[in-house]
């Protein structure tokens, strides 16, 4: 699981990240009792009862690009964030996963791109439903904000605009 930078882009603004990552090897009894925590699908499947019983703090999922959504889709309402990991810049699976979450499962909360996330992917990620970006730490996060403006016109239906160009007014 990649280390999360302290600052992220969310909804076109740079903000501090409030989420802590709980790694897979943490025992269920050592899960922090409060605070916002994020964990893998495996961890969720293994510790679902325990995690659901927490009274303080929000829950979030960290997906790998191969994770199937049906493993957790019945519980989507429990999560305040879904992070999708990009193990490499060129691994495009996460784009499909984000669109499915937004357009098929109607997940309304934060979808965050983490991992090998650079300015040059941001516009497409945004179009596919990501609204938060953990820009790789060695890169200038302020510069990445410019990517929202790369294009002002698009052709396809996607999560940012459910109508393709031929159905727009």
């Amino acid at each position: 699981m990649p280390k999360q930078p302290n600052k992220i882009i969310k909804d076109r603004k740079i903000i501090d990240d409030s989420w802590s990552v709980v790694s897979d090897d943490v025992d269920k009894n050592d899960i922090p009792a409060d605070g916002d925590i994020i964990f893998s699908v495996d961890f969720w499947v293994k510790n679902q009862k325990h995690l659901e019983s927490r009274s303080n703090g929000r829950l979030g999922l960290m997906l790998e690009s191969t994770d199937e959504i049906n493993l957790f889709s019945d519980n989507l309402g429990l999560f305040d964030i879904i992070s999708i990991n990009f193990p490499a810049f060129a691994d495009g699976r996460g784009y499909s996963v984000a669109r499915l979450l937004r357009e098929r499962y109607h997940f309304q909360k934060e979808i965050r791109a983490v991992g090998d996330v650079l300015r040059d992917q941001l516009f497409y990620m945004y179009r596919c439903g990501f609204n938060a970006f953990a820009i790789r730490e060695d890169r200038c996060i302020e510069d990445a904000l410019n990517a929202y403006n790369d294009f002002t016109v698009t052709y396809q239906a996607a999560s940012d605009n459910l109508n393709p160009i031929y159905r727009r007014a």
Partner: peptide, 13 residues
């Protein structure tokens, strides 16, 4: 062509 140009989901196949 229009559908495939800068398709946001399919740029990293």
């Amino acid at each position: 062509r229009q559908w495939s140009t800068f398709h946001p989901e399919f740029a990293y196949l």
